[in-house]
Amino acid sequence: MSITQRVQQWATFGRVWHVYDCSYQNPFDSAKVIVKYLKGMQKPIYHPMNDCGDHVVCINTKQIALPGDEWTKRAYFHHTGYPSSATWTLAWELHSKDPMMIMKKAIYRSLGGNLQRRHTMQRLHLFKDDKVPQEVLDNITNQIRQLRPVPQRLDHIDQEVIDNFPKIMDYPEDYLPKAIK
């Protein structure tokens, strides 16, 4: 193999690092998208026996948004193996203990049963906030688009924008808003 062919081989099978911002995203819908990148299914060279999966860096996993009443209804089961040691932890409880666990379990589950699953999970890097080590950030060359819009908080909008927002009328100077009961 000549040196150009060798470099071509490295280029084709080089692992790409993707970043995904989990803030306000449904972890179960996001997992389906992230799994495709972890397995390398977005590549034209994909084959199940072809080791071409990419790395995915998930940031802001603390900010995930579960649909409906899943925070209080979804239970995570764990059994240590000893008698009467089965536990059912609610999603909000688990999230307060480990803010990365719900995202990790969602991705692990959607990878499907396979001997490669543990190895594929090694290419997933979860961070609870946007504080990512510089050596990880240096590798990233692509970003996965979010699945739903991130709502904007009123206290994050500039005061200038709020003041210039179109209004039908101004409240009188001595106007008292109705007291909240």
Binding site: V19, Y20, D21, I59, D130, L137, I140, T141, N142, Q143, I144, R145, Q146, L147, R148, P149, V150
Partner: peptide
């Protein structure tokens, strides 16, 4: 993409 600092707000937005 060579000059973008990831993560980028606009690139990650839903289309």
């Amino acid at each position: 993409f060579n000059n973008i600092a990831f993560p980028d707000k606009e690139l990650g937005k839903q289309l």
